[in-house]
Amino acid sequence: MDYYVTILALYIVVAVVACWGLNLQFGEAGVLNFAYILFVAAGAYTTSILTLGHPSPGGLQEYFWGTNLPWPLPWLASAVVGGVLGIGIGAVSLRRLRGDYQAMVLLVISILGTYLVSAKVSLLNGATGLSQIPAPFQGVLHLGIIGYRLFYLGLSVVAALVVFEILRRIQRAPLGRLLRAMRENEAAASAVGHNVVALRLLVMGVGGAIAALAGAIQVQFIGAWAPSSWTYPETFGLFAAVIVGGRGNLGGVALGAFLVQGVFLEGTVLFPNIANPNLVGASQWISLGALILIFLWFRPQGVLPERRRVFGRQPAPGLLDPASIIGPVEGVSV
């Protein structure tokens, strides 16, 4: 039982981190990144090759290059790769294209990534994928299976907390307000002097870095990664979690990730003896679709809606002279 609980807990932490990154893009800034899972994959592959060591000719698996870095360098490097990739893909897809094109092109890019990695075996072992990816400190610590899992869970939670703090700061700062303004009305945001292209690239970068970190955490835990782990419908599962939990609310998104990714998707996989596994798989996706529809209809803001921002009432002295701003306005009674 503990065995399942630790696995499930880790999957949920990974899902929460991934959904937070997606929330920055979709929930806060209104950027619909249908290639999101690609960034999770980029992180997973980066951490894989940075921990697997040099590829040995004639070895079990092929990959273009590799080395062996100590934790947490692979995770950090993954975040950097995810961020750079986000800005790169953002520059290609978001800079010049209209909203509807952006969504479609990102979807195409996601598939393109899967095809490319599957087709070029020498790159990242093709469709078979990479395996035997080492976990950090596993050889050093002698903790037993459950003990090590708990240790690794601890590392992941620390990473998740760092991500949370970064996102909370962005959300509360004037930057977060600009992102929400862009979500509400892009043309109006640029008409008052904000560079919406730069803002979109920013969330592609930061969101991509967070996605990649989620992939890095996951891959060192399960020890394997293949194109089948990141097909594009996976992105929709993450979207579902963000919508159900509550776009724009970090706590809500975490709850959504827990409900959808943890209980709903992974939970049923981990307890396969309920029914015919094939049927479980399909009915799980059907109910996920139904869940999205139900929420969009009955509670489009999610379980925990975005919070209303309230500003304190301490007037700054010397700044409250209305005449200095727009002058006296006759006939406008307060």
């Binding site: 307000r177 929400r180 303004a181 979500r183 509400e184 009305n185 109006a188 945001a189 309230v310």
Partner: peptide, 11 residues
């Protein structure tokens, strides 16, 4: 529709 709907007036 030039306003930011889900932002408060202050925001």
């Amino acid at each position: 529709g030039g306003e930011f709907g889900r932002l408060t007036v202050m925001e």
